[in-house]
């Protein structure tokens, strides 16, 4: 699986986004064990230090926790995951709206397009 990382933005932020999508979509279900830093780094073709940084940041945000001897796990706090999903969705929608505004489409036209194409 390719992670499609872009060199223009900090890699650890893009890694976090990638893993956040995996958590929200259930590819990494609540309470699941997260693969080791090294495995993930190899999979994403990034430096293990960068992967470590992304995972520690996610831990700080409460999306993961470390069990001292057995490794890292996805949080089983369903509320946290639901709010993550909301955040990601609104970021996506904001971007979409901006793009539609650049095309000079008004709200009703956009809503119609969404209904027709969704």
């Amino acid at each position: 699986m390719s992670w499609n990382l872009n060199s223009d933005r900090p890699i650890f932020i893009q890694i976090m986004e990638h893993i956040e999508y995996d958590i929200v979509s259930g590819a990494l279900p609540p309470g699941a064990k997260v693969p080791s830093v090294r495995e993930l780094a190899t999979e994403a073709s990034v430096n293990p230090n960068t992967m470590q940084r992304a995972l520690s940041e996610m831990e700080r945000q409460g999306l993961m926790r470390t069990e001292r001897t057995s490794g890292r796990y996805v949080t089983d706090d369903e509320k946290a995951i639901a709010s993550l999903k909301q955040n990601l969705a609104s970021v996506g929608v904001d971007g979409f709206i901006k793009q539609m505004k650049r095309l000079c489409l008004d709200k009703d036209e956009v809503l119609k397009l969404i209904k027709d194409n969704y």
């Binding site: 872009n6 060199s7 223009d8 933005r9 900090p10 890699i11 650890f12 932020i13 960068t50 940084r53």
Partner: peptide
């Protein structure tokens, strides 16, 4: 990553 976040470029 400092370059990417400070300069906004690769």
């Amino acid at each position: 990553d400092e370059i990417r976040s400070d300069e906004g470029k690769s």
